[in-house]
Design a protein around this nucleic acid. Sequence first.
DNA 1: GAGTGGTCTAGACCACCGC
DNA 2: CGGTGGTCTAGACCACTCT
Lengths: 253, 253
Amino acid sequence: MGTTQLESVPEPKYWHLRTVLSEALDSEFAVGEILPNERDLAARFGVARATLRQALEQLELEGRLQRRRGVGTTVAPPRVGVDVGMEGETWPGTSEDAWQPVDCTVGAPPSAVADALGTGRDEAVHIVRRSRVSHGRPVAAELLYVPRASVPDLTAIDTPSGAARARAVLRELRRPALEGQDRAVELGSARADDAKELDRLPGAPVLVVTTRFFAGGRTAALSVATYRADTCRLTFGASGTVEIHHGPERQAS
Amino acid sequence: MGTTQLESVPEPKYWHLRTVLSEALDSEFAVGEILPNERDLAARFGVARATLRQALEQLELEGRLQRRRGVGTTVAPPRVGVDVGMEGETWPGTSEDAWQPVDCTVGAPPSAVADALGTGRDEAVHIVRRSRVSHGRPVAAELLYVPRASVPDLTAIDTPSGAARARAVLRELRRPALEGQDRAVELGSARADDAKELDRLPGAPVLVVTTRFFAGGRTAALSVATYRADTCRLTFGASGTVEIHHGPERQAS
DNA sequence: GAGTGGTCTAGACCACCGC
DNA sequence: CGGTGGTCTAGACCACTCT
């Protein structure tokens, strides 16, 4: 068994606080319940508000709490499993892929995107914006970069504009066969515009899913989707019903 | 009077600072270079150290900076692409899957894990610890929960102990055919033990990859792998060479 | 207007690292 | 030892939401 070392080094207060609060959430609070305000909680635990807030930030990062300015802090529901499946590799915009086209502009992408697409750094591409909702809440915002070369027949059309234009680009993009795709997930922080769409503050933690679509021997399109990290669990594969992490969701002491 | 809302929405200082620093990193610093210390930076920008730190935290979250107590703040190298492929679904521990067995204990798993495994909440399971290194640095720590029923022939052996025991469990686990697997990714914060292994402080942001392995019509094992979110980009699919996000990596002033 | 979380300050001390 | 980042405090004010 274990050689448990006694704590020669004191645990930081905010970390201990996080643990205490976490256990309290398990045993004494129901989902949706509102916690006492930060000033009261800080006083109750005998710490400064900044310290209390550090603990709350941790718990929010872990998806246990939800804080809204002007409202209060509530116990968050378990994270939503959002399918990001890899099974059938498909073009974006097919039948129902859970994304809703928002609009479409033309402009130069960030240089890192241009490099991945193999376009020139100042070459304009179609930029399709889409959003994804789950259980009535926005969970992700996507920017889909489509080089002009990937939708050659689109040049004639000039301006259904808005969502209609986005759909037109997606429709044209799907014409050739998809040869493969390639995906990466990393942590990021929400830019101002994403934050607004996701109903969060700028800088909020997000999971950035980058997908490259291959066709005609080139990268035909590149999608950068940002998911709310606090409320989402990205699922891959068939059954999206993994239910892991932090224990009991209810049960009195 | 003017009421005036000049900037109707003033940007928070720390957010503006983040942007300024981010641009400075792109244009004036090389990877590995050390920044001035926090007190100097704060003075230089005319803000309190706490505010400066808020900006640095953002940048660290985004993988742009690396801070080490007693040493300083350095410009981080681009994130490492870590393959978490789904292609060939395989048991853990095959040939070279990049993981190194560390040790193996027997004990009751967290209740959420027990539920996913379908074992009783107090039923002991094998817990295999493995670690993963990339480019000489630890990037992930894994706990693999294996119900006794999944490795029935192991009961006879009593304790090669340590890594040898871990390998024995993995070997026995691989006997039946793998019928499928199922994966999820979410944001978490490092527990004290994971933090130590990953060379980070407790609470550091991590990407938690949960994988269920199915065999014999049951969940034969469950893996919970925590990756350093600051240094890792999880890649799925063939070419692990997506290189996205934030621009130029070099160039002197 | 009252009450909430979000930002910011100016200080202090601590834990760690390298010399 | 001196210098670094990490923790913590006790205040202040702002932005927001609800009633």
